[in-house]
Amino acid sequence: MSDQVRSDTRLSSVSRDVRDQIADLQADYIAALDSQDMKGWLASFDENNSSYFCRSKENEDEGLEVGYMFDDCHERICDRVKFVDEIWAGTFEEYQTRHFLQPTRCKSLGEDLYSAQTNFTVMYTDDAGITKVLASGCYDDEIVVNGVARLRSRKAVLDTNVVPRYMVYPI
């Protein structure tokens, strides 16, 4: 990566205020997921226009769009809340997740839109109390920042190419 590119996408390339708002968004997002609060997860997305994708790096690198979750409009993000909270309720063994994030890149896309990359590791703990790695990867986000930060689009790209068991909650 050239020095020019690096300085343009460093976290310090955007204002402290914007960074703080994005940091709050990321913290709210993982706090919601780690308490199985799907409505809190939904609140992280821009209700006017947003998308959420969760796919493997294998597919991403090949330019293939399908993956674990494919919510290409805000309505289907709403529907995913309903699937987990209502339709699947009582059928799956709940598991506790812990998301750990590390922002790596951020840059302005003009007006109030920013792109951001954030590494994640997600641990999960099953009913027996055993903790394992669920996934490791990187969020590739577009974030609207205007007093409060909301996700315009989130792409959770998993380095983990074979996931354990099954996935109920988004990453």
């Binding site: 769009e65 979750m69 494919f70 996931v163 099954y166």
Partner: peptide
């Protein structure tokens, strides 16, 4: 259509997630 409907199947699939759990 196909990309969208992949939500139905796979490890997080709306009608296949439970199979992984049932096997375990």
């Amino acid at each position: 259509i196909r990309e969208k409907q992949v939500n139905l199947i796979g490890p997080a699939g709306l009608i296949s997630m439970e199979d992984g759990e049932a096997c375990e």
